[in-house]
């Protein structure tokens, strides 16, 4: 397909279908994230970049033989690898035997929260999640380094990327409070249902992006100025990091939340809430700043 706009939309659809598939495979949290990130954020970023780089692709001149060969060999290796795999959904597979049952059995007593994904994410493998938040932070930092300075351009209040859309304005005006409220719900409800800081941050940022798209550049930037965002993201990381370091003061290993309260279970619950808050702040700031950086840039002749 030569039209990159169409390719981007197809990709969005693919992500949405993937999210549906995840739901079918009982991965509610992942489905939620894939829908918000793959179908939402990635598509928005793709479209914002296409605006700057041009919509049409040239017909390639290369012969596709070598890439086909590489792909063929890789695919064959993958299929070879699948030959000895346990079957899909087999409860006896080694994958379901060793570490995973421990989480399902012990998480309720150790954390006191029903969503095991959140328990593993924020506590058992909390260090990975700190790393993940840092990856997001790094992405925001990188985009800032690449697009941050000179060409940022002044915002043009009232001027919108999509033109005057009275109906859309009304719809969005009604929707935005609900989106932001929903984001808060997702943020605070992550221990009980699907969701958590990451998804909440993305949804919150999406609300702002919608506002920016429909009501014009500048309006959203008045509510949340672009220059705050890197610092806000840094603040989010430091919230996470200080919760981790706090344990050190009490002679416990990094990210041990039990020191946060008398009762270890309450401490862990509180720790999870706090780090999710840090994640939410960081993700919100980074997603919005990347959007600002791409959408605020003028196409150069």
């Amino acid at each position: 397909m030569r039209d990159l706009f169409a390719v981007a939309m197809m990709f969005g659809i693919y992500s949405l279908l993937t999210a549906a598939l995840f739901m079918d495979l009982d991965a509610a949290d992942v489905a939620f994230t894939e829908a918000a990130v793959g179908a939402g954020v990635t598509t928005i970023l793709l479209l914002s970049s296409l605006r700057l780089t041009g919509r049409w692709e040239r017909r390639p001149k290369h012969s596709p033989l070598l890439p086909l060969l590489v792909v063929g060999v890789t695919g064959a290796a993958l299929v070879y690898g699948t030959l000895d795999m346990p079957h899909l959904g087999d409860p006896q597979a080694p994958v379901h035997q060793h570490v995973a049952p421990h989480y399902i059995e012990n998480a309720p007593q150790e954390m006191g929260i029903p969503n095991i994904v959140t328990a593993v994410l924020a506590s058992y493998r909390g260090f990975d999640t700190l790393g993940e938040t840092l990856v997001i932070f790094t992405a925001g930092l990188s985009v800032f380094l690449l697009l941050g300075s000179r060409a940022g351009g002044r915002p043009r209040p009232g001027k919108t990327a999509i033109g005057e859309q009275p109906v859309l304005r009304l719809v969005v005006k009604v929707l935005i409070p609900f989106i932001l409220l929903f984001a808060l719900y997702v943020q605070l409800h992550g221990e009980y249902g699907a969701g958590g800081g990451f998804q909440a941050g993305v949804i919150f940022a999406t609300g702002m992006v919608l506002y920016d798209l429909v009501f014009g550049e500048g309006d959203a930037r008045l509510v949340v100025p672009a220059r705050w965002l890197p610092r806000l993201a840094a603040f989010g990381i430091l919230v996470y990091g200080s919760v981790g370091l706090y344990a050190l003061l009490h002679g416990r290993p990094f990210l041990d939340y039990t020191v946060l309260a008398e009762d270890p279970m309450v401490g862990r619950h509180l720790g999870i809430l706090l780090v999710e808050l840090g994640i939410g702040i960081c993700v919100f700031a980074v997603v919005l700043s990347i959007f600002y950086a791409l959408s605020g840039r003028r196409r150069q002749p």
Binding site: L25, A27, V30, V95, V99, A100, I116, V117
Partner: peptide, 8 residues
């Protein structure tokens, strides 16, 4: 339950 670890 489904295995939570791959999800994380």
């Amino acid at each position: 339950y489904a295995n939570p670890l791959p999800h994380v």
